[in-house]
Nucleic acid binder design. Sequence first.
DNA 1: CGTTAATCGAGACGGTACGTCAAGTCTTTTC
DNA 2: GAAAAGACTTGACGTACCGTCTCGATTAACG
Lengths: 207, 207, 207, 207
Amino acid sequence: MQSSTPATRPGRPRSAAAATAILAATREALVEVGWSRLTLGDVATRAGVAKTTLYRRWSGKNELVVDAVAELFDELELPDRGSLAADIEGVVLQFAAILARPEARSGLMAVVAESTRDDALRERIRASIVERQKHLVVLGRSRAQKRGELPPETDPEEAARTADLIFDVVAGAVVHRTLVSAEPVDEEWVRSFAGLLLNGLTADATA
Amino acid sequence: MQSSTPATRPGRPRSAAAATAILAATREALVEVGWSRLTLGDVATRAGVAKTTLYRRWSGKNELVVDAVAELFDELELPDRGSLAADIEGVVLQFAAILARPEARSGLMAVVAESTRDDALRERIRASIVERQKHLVVLGRSRAQKRGELPPETDPEEAARTADLIFDVVAGAVVHRTLVSAEPVDEEWVRSFAGLLLNGLTADATA
Amino acid sequence: MQSSTPATRPGRPRSAAAATAILAATREALVEVGWSRLTLGDVATRAGVAKTTLYRRWSGKNELVVDAVAELFDELELPDRGSLAADIEGVVLQFAAILARPEARSGLMAVVAESTRDDALRERIRASIVERQKHLVVLGRSRAQKRGELPPETDPEEAARTADLIFDVVAGAVVHRTLVSAEPVDEEWVRSFAGLLLNGLTADATA
Amino acid sequence: MQSSTPATRPGRPRSAAAATAILAATREALVEVGWSRLTLGDVATRAGVAKTTLYRRWSGKNELVVDAVAELFDELELPDRGSLAADIEGVVLQFAAILARPEARSGLMAVVAESTRDDALRERIRASIVERQKHLVVLGRSRAQKRGELPPETDPEEAARTADLIFDVVAGAVVHRTLVSAEPVDEEWVRSFAGLLLNGLTADATA
DNA sequence: CGTTAATCGAGACGGTACGTCAAGTCTTTTC
DNA sequence: GAAAAGACTTGACGTACCGTCTCGATTAACG
């Protein structure tokens, strides 16, 4: 039944603590020196681990940082705030808060940049970060539909396309505001943005 | 008065052709090897120039790539297509076409990533790329106002904030769709996105 | 009396075959990759043995190779060819034949080199290789004395010194010819060398 | 006429001081840590030079050590001591004195060992060390011939073969005595050895 | 028309990090 | 308790670029 992961392999098992320490050390190094000056040797030292141990588990800097950053986004959640507008504002603020942390800022765009020439890396980003958070959009919509704020979807394919569009707009806008425009994602901006998005969605539905 | 750019400095003047050749070589290298494998030595060789010459004019890889990529975005323009929706769709498609080119994909996100820890670099990006294209938003809006599609703005400060918001939403969404989701910005997606944006803007205005 | 090899010790007994396999694997590896690229991990793999087993019996590469090479020199013997000249020529040719084998060439000088900074290793080489073959000189001399080719020795201490000298001259000349000058030890050279040595010894004796 | 070595090549010329410092540092390191623990990084540090500078000029540890050791043997000379016996004893003592120095002991046998699997290295050793010192044999012989201690040679090819034989015997015996037998090359041993050699040569000539 | 001074090419330089490899140890389960 | 298996720490490897430097050789404007 569990044959894919044999109960016990021969030889000394991999230290479970090492992975944790390495990812934490990676984030620590991202905070202190940023992506481009981050070296795997330094990460290994910080984690109290040999460089070879690190290379045994990750194929390089890119993959390591994706995993280290992905854990940050697992904090995101969507508490029910009573209205679609409030839910959007809430999750946007959470997202912005994560992006404000230097370990995310430094690493995220860098691996996205690298992924433009590395399909495996892009897939890893998609699987570890993007897809893992996309459920928030689906959850928010279904709540809004229950509340009657949005009409029930008819075509499931169309629904998936819209979810993707919303995700691109929300994530893209917040990232661009934060990293490119370098302006704060404060309550005022979030209200404007959520208003724009909400009107777009509801008007769009009736159009 | 001529102190800012002295008419003639003593000594041999800098070769005008060199700068052009270097920027072209940079884009060529970006296409072939991407950002992370791009080396200034290679760029110099491609440009038929000594490394010294390159360093005399740019302080490093980041600054060089910003300049090389910035030129790409100067192609953007906003021909009058008769309606706000058509104008938005047109410029989004143009923007997506540039982002589809490997010299832009590889370089743009990378320098943005670097800029999270380098204020001078971020300012250079803002000045060379972001601000230089933001006029498109202003131009589009004023056209739409003339056509009566959008109400005239009352508060100029509010107008500037809205222009920034629109820019972040448009640029962010297209970049995210292209580089993170890695899905094509085709006519269907553009229509959906422009619809969302347009409804958001007009409904927002009347709300 | 059985204390040296207790009939049954607790636990799994050491495999007797392992030592043989390891030494053979060492020689095999010496032939294929030479001393400097020989790794204990590779030897263990070739011998079908875990690295741990190897380290349990030898303290390192040097000791292992000394043992592996020493076995080669046990082939040397001194059949009675009827005259001192013929005996010298015979043993020199045998010695040269062993030195011509890659497992000896690669390993022998390397461990000698290491032994210049490792007294224990030098002693191991002396005991395993040098002293074990020095009896050939003594045997050859006593035969020549019986034949009347050499006068009987008077001072046993002087006799030991002369034996050492002969050994150094013979072994040194052959090694130097083979490994440094990289010229073949063919019959012509052996005849010249044996002639030189024989004249030196007999003239020296009468002088 | 001097086109083989162009007067000035383009680019920054190589530092002359670097080569000197590197070879001296190599010998220093040989003394302190020996061959097997000698690392090129350490040599570079000791020489106050970057590792790359070292690799730009030598292809590896072997070649570097050959050059470093070769310089030691340039001290050898053959002052006229009045008789062939005295000349031999003198040069043997000089040779032994060099071999007694740890920088020679550690390095010499090691590169010879390596050369058993590297033809280019063996050739380098031959050219830098062996051939460069072989003239001592030729010089000693011609002096002895002038003195009437040795008959004039008739066949030049035979003369060359004999010179090679003598070199192998002398160098081989001293090296073996010093490094393998690990016994001192003192005046007593040298007298015995020179006697053996001298008798062998003169008797050989009359045989 | 010959200074003069900054440019240009070339390439060596001191560094830093790379990703790999082997050494020798330690921690598992199996025999 | 020895053995096979393999993860572990350590440290050197040889390479690639970095950004700086030192050369001789141009190349203009200025005197």
